[in-house]
C-alpha cells in the first residue's frame, strides 16, 4: 500500500479507500492502481474517505476522471466523503460532481451510492 492510501476496507460490497496527504499525480496513481485491481476482481463500487487529504492538484483529480471513465464501462460508481471545502469546490469546478457523488459521512455514502 502506498503512503497516500492508509486503509482499504469493504462495507456492503463497496470498497472504501482512505487517503492521507496531497492528491497529486503520485496519489492519484496509487488510487487508480488500487481501483483497477479491485475492478479486475469484480468490484464496481468505490468510496474515497478524503478526511486526510486537505490539498489536491488538478493532475491528481484528473486521474479520478480517468477512474470515473473506466467505471462507466462496467456501470460502476465512485463517491467521496469527508471532503475539505476547497477539495469539494475543486471537484465542482472540474465537473466531477456530474459523474460521481459527494457525501457527508461514510454511513450516508454507503446508503446513497
Amino acid at each position: 500500500m502506498s503512503d497516500f492510501i492508509t486503509n482499504v476496507k469493504e462495507n456492503n460490497s463497496i470498497v472504501i479507500i482512505e487517503t492521507n496527504g496531497y492528491l497529486n499525480n503520485v496519489g492519484g496513481e496509487a488510487v487508480s492502481t488500487l481501483v483497477y485491481e479491485k475492478m479486475a476482481q469484480g468490484n464496481t463500487k468505490f468510496l474515497i474517505n478524503m478526511a486526510g487529504t486537505k490539498i489536491v492538484n488538478s493532475i491528481g483529480v484528473s486521474i479520478l476522471i480517468e477512474i470515473i471513465e473506466k467505471l462507466q464501462e462496467v456501470n460502476g460508481k465512485i463517491g467521496y466523503y469527508n471532503l475539505a471545502p476547497i477539495v469539494a469546490k475543486t471537484f465542482n469546478i472540474m465537473g466531477l460532481t456530474k459523474y460521481s457523488t459527494v457525501h457527508e459521512t461514510e454511513e450516508a455514502a454507503v446508503n446513497e451510492l
Partner: peptide, 21 residues
C-alpha cells in the same frame, strides 16, 4: 476552456484544468 463532458468517454486527455481553476 475544459469541460468534463468533452473528456469523459472520449479520447481527449483528462488534464488541462489549471487556468480554469
Amino acid at each position: 476552456i475544459p469541460k468534463i463532458e468533452n473528456k469523459i468517454g472520449k479520447d481527449e486527455r483528462k488534464r488541462g484544468w489549471g487556468l480554469q481553476l
